[in-house]
């Protein structure tokens, strides 16, 4: 946990707690068990209405046009593909999100697919066009190390994957982990009493809060809806 990773058994506990939390908040995360010894995964389906994303995409373009100097040729092309992408005949995109544990990285991994109403998968370019502009510019140098299509480790079918190699460092530097540091020194613990809302030691940490923290930081990139109440309840 201190290094931002979690073990498979902690992940399994987190999954159960998270699904309970989801039910409390009337969200629709479901637990799916894998057939062999793997610890299972959670999934959620969601519809994306195009008029909503149309608005977002255009606002993103206004934003980035202010920084036109920083746009690379590639980004300009992508912007053009944004406008092409937003076709009136595509109304609703259905999304499927999975959270799966990676043994190799000891962290949760987000897999997802998005489908047109024809049932056809969105392409990588189309997925990128849905990524909010603020993340697009930040990730422009790392496109291929951040989001790629991969074989789903449990289903064996193609899914898009947010690459897990940065997850541990993200979680290491998260507020939650910083708040757990006092466990090393009591003096600092007292000094940090002001942030007691999140200053649980790993063992006292509310179950499910690792997933809440991680998922809420990656969700906006891939249009995954996540209520703010997750944070409130998860940290009480």
């Amino acid at each position: 946990m201190v290094d931002g990773t979690i073990s498979a058994s902690v992940f399994a506990d987190e999954l159960h707690a998270f699904v309970e939390l989801s039910a409390t908040l009337k969200d629709t995360w479901q637990l799916a068990m894998a057939n062999d010894s793997k610890c299972g995964y959670i999934s959620k389906r969601q519809l994306l209405k195009l008029d909503q994303h149309l608005a977002d995409v255009s606002s993103g373009m206004v934003e980035s046009s202010l920084e036109v100097d920083e746009l690379t040729e590639q980004e300009v092309e992508d912007e053009e593909s944004n406008t092409i992408q937003v076709k009136p005949q595509t109304r609703v995109i259905s999304c499927e999100y999975h959270v799966v544990y990676s043994d190799s990285y000891s962290v949760p991994v987000l897999y997802f697919n998005m489908y047109h109403d024809s049932g056809k998968l969105l392409t990588l370019d189309e997925i990128w066009s849905l990524v909010p502009q603020i993340y697009q510019s930040r990730l422009s140098q790392e496109r291929w190390t951040f989001l790629t299509q991969q074989e789903h480790p449990i289903l064996g079918r193609p899914y898009f994957q947010l690459h897990p190699c940065h997850t541990a460092s993200l979680m290491k530097h998260s507020v939650l982990s910083r708040a757990t540091k006092p466990e090393i020194s009591t003096d600092t613990a007292q000094g940090l009493a002001g942030v007691s809302a999140t200053s649980h030691t790993p063992s006292m940490r509310r179950k499910g809060s690792y997933l809440v923290q991680w998922l809420s930081s990656v969700a906006p990139v891939v249009r995954l809806g996540m209520s703010l109440e997750y944070g409130l309840i998860g940290n009480n």
Partner: peptide
């Protein structure tokens, strides 16, 4: 069943990952 392969970049990305 198959991953799309839009370019050699996709192969490189997959290999490096």
């Amino acid at each position: 069943e198959l991953l799309h392969c839009p370019s050699r970049d996709a192969v490189e990305a997959h290999f490096m990952a």
